Amino acid sequence: MEYIVIGAVILLVLFFIAQYNRLIRLNITVDEAFAQIEVQLKRRADLIPNLVETVKGYAAHEQSTFDAVVTARAKATSATTIADVAAADGALTNALKGLLAVAEAYPDLKASANFLSLQEELSTTENKVSFARQFYNDTVRSLNTAVKTIPTSFFAGFAKVDARDFYEVENPTDRNVPGVKF
């Protein structure tokens, strides 16, 4: 009888440790996923000055478009919370769409090897940002599911792990393509 009680206590302790460790691992994975988003956004922010300068050489009269990109980039590089990073990311994406729309109006620019290289690098980076966002949201879903379902929900407070916000870039009503007028 004594061995059964000891065995049951050991099983409960092992179960507790397993649930606690699972929550901690999920929490770390979410932090890592957000860090990957920031890495890709930094990469994109580093490409933007070169892209702006390249386009500026061909379309000097598009100053408001350049200003919008530079302002959005500044906000994106200074954001810290998930909501602020997501909002700044969305604004920067829209500003870049406007910049690339301006570039479409200049055939010489579109044929420039430097511009094409920067555009390809930006496109690759956008794909990486998109993947990083999706990975983050997948890990947040896993963490939130664990935090809100039994039995791990009993251990969330003890592990000091809370549900996290999803990474949402834009408001669904703001999905219009920016207009460019000459």
Rank of each mutant, 00 (worst) to 15 (best):
E32H: 07
S117Y: 08
T145S: 12
A35L: 03
V5H: 08
Y20A: 04
A103Q: 01
S142W: 06
F15L: 13
A111D: 15
D138L: 06
A146N: 00
Q36C: 03
G57M: 02
R44T: 05
K160F: 03
V70L: 06
D67E: 14
A88V: 05
S78G: 08
S78Y: 06
I10C: 12
I6G: 09
R22F: 01
A83M: 06
A105G: 14
V30T: 10
N50S: 13
A101L: 11
L23Q: 01
V102D: 07
L47F: 12
K181C: 02
I150A: 07
H61K: 08
A163L: 04
S117V: 11
F182H: 08
A156R: 00
Q119L: 01
R141G: 09
D165P: 08
T139K: 07
A83I: 04
Q119M: 04
D165F: 07
V55F: 01
A45W: 00
D165G: 08
T81N: 04
A101M: 13
T80S: 14
Y58I: 01
R141Y: 10
E2G: 14
L92K: 01
G7V: 08
R73W: 06
T77R: 03
K97Q: 14
A45Q: 13
N50I: 04
A163C: 04
R133F: 07
D174Q: 13
A146E: 04
S123H: 06
R164F: 01
I37P: 04
E104K: 09
T80A: 11
D31L: 03
P178D: 09
V69F: 07
T65I: 04
E168M: 10
R44F: 09
I82S: 00
E126N: 12
S130T: 05
Y106F: 15
R133M: 03
V55E: 02
G7L: 08
V147R: 03
A59C: 06
I17E: 10
T124N: 15
S112P: 05
A83C: 05
A60M: 01
V177Y: 07
T149F: 07
K97H: 04
V177T: 12
T139V: 02
N27V: 02
V5Q: 09
G157T: 01
E121F: 02
T80H: 10
S112K: 07
V5Y: 10
T54G: 12
Q134D: 11
V70D: 03
S78R: 10
S142V: 03
V70G: 06
I24L: 09
L47V: 14
G179T: 15
T77E: 10
E170R: 15
G57C: 05
